[in-house]
Design a protein around this nucleic acid. Structure first.
Length: 201
DNA sequence: CACCCGATTATCT
DNA sequence: GATAATCGGGTGT
């Protein structure tokens, strides 16, 4: 008889081929697994925002395809990563219905689970606990995610992928306007896990 | 080629 | 809460 170790199942391509806003909400409580530079790091997604297509003035895709945002127009379930404010990378997941041009979910905060000592090292040793991953630029630094991971396929166990987390029964989701944007502030497309200490604000 | 600005963060007061 | 740091992308000349 086989040894049965309960493996959490990887989110399939069909998970990402749905409405962008729905996916942003559904990603809460899911577990990001990251194999980069021979190091394993994992954490729970606790905050995310939806960015849609030409119906969303705050989205990079609003004015059409450019060199930077090409991944947003590509297949759902891949990574879209961009550099911002001269310092930081932001990690997004391409998420959209097949009929829609573009769309992605920004991962804004993660609760660290595995590889915490590596995250501390990547962030600088003076950074501890919640400061490791409680912001979009912080978590990419902690996980060593950068432009080389743009377009990475998240539906295969290569460098980045996401699995179900089975301990979400008591999770409460909060919805608010998105952070750091000046248009479409009436769209309630930010989601986070209530009372989770790693949420950015 | 010059200009403007941003899905942020750290470091002040 | 206010703001400097920092630089690539996008736009227009």
């Amino acid at each position: 008889m086989k040894t049965k170790k309960m493996m959490k199942s990887i989110l399939p391509q069909s998970f990402y081929a749905r409405n962008t806003v729905t996916i942003a909400r559904d990603l809460l409580g899911k577990q990001l697994i990251c194999h980069i530079d021979g190091i394993i790091r994992e954490g729970i997604i606790v905050e995310a925002e939806a960015y849609c297509s030409d119906n969303d003035p705050a989205s990079h895709a609003f004015s059409g395809k450019t060199k930077r945002n090409t991944a947003m127009f590509g297949p759902a379930g891949h990574a879209y990563i961009y550099f911002i404010y001269g310092n930081h990378y932001c990690f997004n997941i391409v998420a959209k219905e097949d009929a829609v041009n573009a769309g992605a979910v920004l991962i804004r905060a993660i609760e660290p689970i595995i590889g915490i000592e590596h995250m501390q090292k990547a962030r600088g040793n003076h950074q501890t606990n919640i400061n490791l991953t409680n912001g979009p630029g912080k978590l990419t630094q902690a996980f060593n995610i950068n432009l080389s991971h743009n377009n990475c396929n998240l539906t295969k166990k290569e460098k980045l992928w996401i699995v179900e987390d089975h301990n979400t029964e008591s999770m409460v989701t909060v919805c608010t306007p998105r952070i750091g944007i000046k248009s479409a502030t009436d769209y309630i497309w930010r989601f986070y896990i209530k009372d989770n200490p790693w949420v950015s604000r």
